[in-house]
């Protein structure tokens, strides 16, 4: 679905991406992991066609992003790291607006139901909780029914319940057969969601494998953890007490 080959990107003297190559298959959830400044968002936005390609080649479904960015944009859904929408429009109005911008039609009620916001259609984005706003951003990304979704740090700043409900949503998208490329700081999130992950640092890929294979490779080196892993942690306690179910109200 996505092919990135020898991608380079600089901001002045700073080399943000240095020779990155990877592929994302159909129906695969692919994670870009790394600390701040590793180049995750730059890679994502280059594939999306939001940033110009300086060196290297990127294709989406066989279409060259540098040559036909408009065609590529019709195939992808985007949830940016920091997304705000037009103020004073309701969720339903925003979805219809984006449908018009994508030259498509949308079943607002059905789309909101998919992201757990069925009864919020007449509310404005600013009145939603952060978790609901992130789910709405994914609803907007789904307006054009894209086979490929880009989610840039979708769970950053969310409480555990909202994060778990977003995980459920991503897994649901995979079940629908969509490819998802996401960036995250949270390793447990990547382990839970991603079929494969690329670990980035300073614009380079350090490792590219399935999470389990990466763990096995680490253990094969003789890696040993002194801390006894508990059967549950505080997050589990929190979720058990407050409920793991999707919260639709802030």
């Amino acid at each position: 679905m996505v092919s990135v080959s020898e991608l380079y990107k600089s901001y002045g003297a700073i080399e943000a991406v240095r020779g990155v190559s990877f592929d994302v298959g159909r129906g695969e959830v692919f994670g870009l992991l790394g600390p701040n400044g590793a180049g995750k968002t730059t890679i994502l936005e280059t594939i999306e066609g939001m940033l110009p390609i300086e060196q290297g080649r990127v294709t989406v479904d066989g279409i060259d992003v540098a040559r036909e960015p408009e065609r590529v944009r019709r195939l992808i859904g985007i949830s940016l790291q920091k997304t705000t929408f037009f103020e004073r429009l309701t969720l339903a109005e925003l979805l219809r607006l984006f449908a018009d911008l994508y030259e498509t039609s949308v079943r607002v009620d059905r789309l909101l139901e998919r992201v757990g916001l069925a009864d919020q259609a007449s509310r404005q984005v600013k009145t939603l909780s952060e978790g609901q706003q992130q789910r709405f951003a994914i609803a907007v990304a789904l307006v054009n029914d894209p086979p490929l979704l880009f989610l840039d740090e979708p769970t950053t700043g969310l409480d555990p319940q909202a994060r778990r409900s977003l995980w459920d949503l991503v897994q649901f998208l995979r079940l629908e057969g969509r490819s998802v490329v996401l960036t995250t700081h949270y390793m447990e999130e990547a382990q839970q969601l991603c079929d494969r992950v690329a670990i980035l640092d300073s614009g380079r890929i350090l490792a590219l494998e399935t999470p389990n294979r990466l763990i096995d490779e680490l253990l094969a080196t003789g890696f040993h953890k002194d801390i006894v892993v508990q059967a549950a942690d505080l997050e589990d306690v929190f979720l058990h007490m407050t409920g793991k179910q999707l919260r639709t109200q802030p």
């Binding site: 939001m50 911008l101 907007v140």
Partner: peptide, 15 residues
């Protein structure tokens, strides 16, 4: 719109 990221999101639609 630009500073809050609204424009980037609209840019993503390709208009």
């Amino acid at each position: 719109y630009k500073s809050t990221g609204v424009m980037r999101r609209v840019k993503g639609t390709g208009i």
